[in-house]
Nucleic acid binder design. Structure first.
Lengths: 86, 86
DNA sequence: CAGATATTTAGTCATTAAACTAAACATCTA
DNA sequence: TAGATGTTTAGTTTAATGACTAAATATCTG
């Protein structure tokens, strides 16, 4: 399990982004930013961290960039937790 | 799910401590320190963070303090992961 | 193409986190 | 009780993180 993933989910705002994406399926950076008070530049930074951890995909559709969860990494995270719990 | 837990598992050394405890059942701070190169003071700091996150118990037996995993929190972590994955 | 909108990059600053050494505290044994 | 061993606390330093503003880049529309 990569350190990058644990660092990515260590931040409360990023976890909130994940749950927003879970709830809505897909959101643009602009839509996500409506749920937060910090700047769009800061949000972009958070999204970059989530992207690098492979926790989200992004795909540009015209002017907008759509984000969605990449659930494959959660599989690994699940394995890590179960390994310690069992 | 508390932020404290996510912060606690964000550190690679602390995750290694958790897996050592999983593997050995129970270890003293001194025994744990043999697996690391950093100072015992630093280890003590890491153990404090794990204790505050309720990821480990500690119990003094004479001169030694024994650490072991507290698996109840992993249950919550599991729920968090499943919630995003499902 | 020019202007508008969406998003990211660059550069800076304040806060937090992780490491260290030295000292303190707890318990055991002679 | 004194000295040895095990562990934590205090105080400091350095590195990493998260925030900001300003500027750059990408795409759409008139």
């Amino acid at each position: 399990m990569s350190d990058t993933v644990f660092k990515a989910i260590a931040d409360k705002s990023r976890r909130k982004i994940l749950s927003l994406l879970k709830e809505h399926g897909s959101l643009t950076a602009g839509e996500i930013s409506e749920y937060f008070t910090f700047s769009k530049a800061s949000l972009s930074e958070h999204l970059k961290i989530l992207r690098h951890a492979d926790l989200v995909y992004s795909r540009r559709r015209g002017q907008f960039i759509h984000y969605r969860l990449n659930t494959t990494i959660f599989e690994d995270l699940l394995t890590w937790v179960l390994e310690l719990k069992k």
